[in-house]
Design a protein around this nucleic acid. Structure first.
Length: 272
DNA sequence: CGGCTTTGACCGGCGC
DNA sequence: GCGCCGGTCAAAGCCG
């Protein structure tokens, strides 16, 4: 009797493992497809630039005129009206505006960690239908998300003190704060790379902990079936997979915007 | 009491 | 010139 139960459990676990593998393969294919398209676009741009050496692309010159401007998106809960995120810096709000096309206000902040710091940021909140995913083993579904659109302007001229929720547990509380340390998902000049910063997709503070838990469980249990269960849970968790896909899509769309090309990833367009 | 947020006023740019 | 809009200022209020 026990043998039958064990065999049953083994089959169940094998099925789960197979399921997780299929999902993993599907996600990997999506990422590869996006990466290939990005590379193609990049090479196309290079060809165009080589062909048109007189009169370089307008988009590129516009970005070179605004090197300190960067924009990114942060997922929040639709009911969360705080209009703030913890990004390691201390900000003083100096204004707020209701805009015509958006019911949520736009907020203006200055960096208050140093009086002479010229950095400003502005936030506006949008309710978006971000994407529909076709995932193996999951029904087609639509995600309604509240998105904070942030625009950073300028460079910090001081060190940053990380907020508790962002501070690595084993490192010092201070890190150097050149512009690269701004928590930005998309830097305009980094068009060649798929730069996905999950910390800004709301994933880091929650799901990274899940990963750490998995690692800890691996250490503690040393059981392959438990590990498979954890992997299966993780790959089925939309809080893990959605931000990953979201970040990848945004990163790729941003690249296509830079290149002035409508990049069709085979996914439905986000609707505002 | 000092620092921060709120909010109405103000200013400059832009399109008609 | 006028109105609209985005961005900023600054006084008042709030809070620890």
């Amino acid at each position: 009797m026990d043998d039958i139960m064990i065999q049953y459990d083994v089959r169940k676990l094998e099925a789960k493992l197979q399921h997780a593998k299929e999902e993993n393969r599907s996600l990997r294919l999506m990422l590869e497809a996006m990466s290939n398209k990005g590379e193609k676009l990049h090479s196309n741009l290079q060809e165009i630039n080589n062909a048109e050496q007189i009169g370089p692309a307008l988009a590129r010159s516009e970005f070179s005129q605004a090197p300190n401007l960067s924009q990114f998106f942060v997922r929040t809960h639709p009911n969360d009206n705080s209009l703030t995120i913890k990004d390691g810096y201390q900000w003083r709000k100096y204004g707020q505006k209701f805009t015509k096309d958006n019911s949520s206000p736009r907020a203006y902040f200055k960096c208050s960690l140093a009086p002479s710091c010229p950095v400003k940021k502005k936030w506006s909140k949008r309710l978006k239908t971000l994407l529909q995913l076709h995932m193996v083993g999951a029904k087609k579904h639509t995600r309604y998300r509240s998105i904070l659109v942030a625009t950073y302007e300028g460079k910090h001229n001081h060190d940053v003190v990380l907020h508790d929720t962002l501070r690595p547990s084993s490192s010092s509380s201070k890190v150097s704060a050149v512009n690269d340390n701004l928590p930005i998902t998309t830097m305009p000049n980094h068009r060649g790379a798929m730069n996905i910063d999950l910390a800004l997709c709301g994933w880091a503070r929650t799901d990274r902990r899940v990963c750490e838990d998995v690692v800890e469980q691996q250490k503690d249990l040393g059981s392959s079936s438990k590990i498979e269960e954890c992997v299966s849970c993780l790959t089925k968790d939309p809080n893990f997979t959605m931000p990953l896909a979201e970040a990848a899509i945004h990163s790729t769309n941003n690249q296509s915007t830079l290149l002035g090309v409508d990049l069709n990833l085979g996914l439905p367009d986000p609707q505002v």
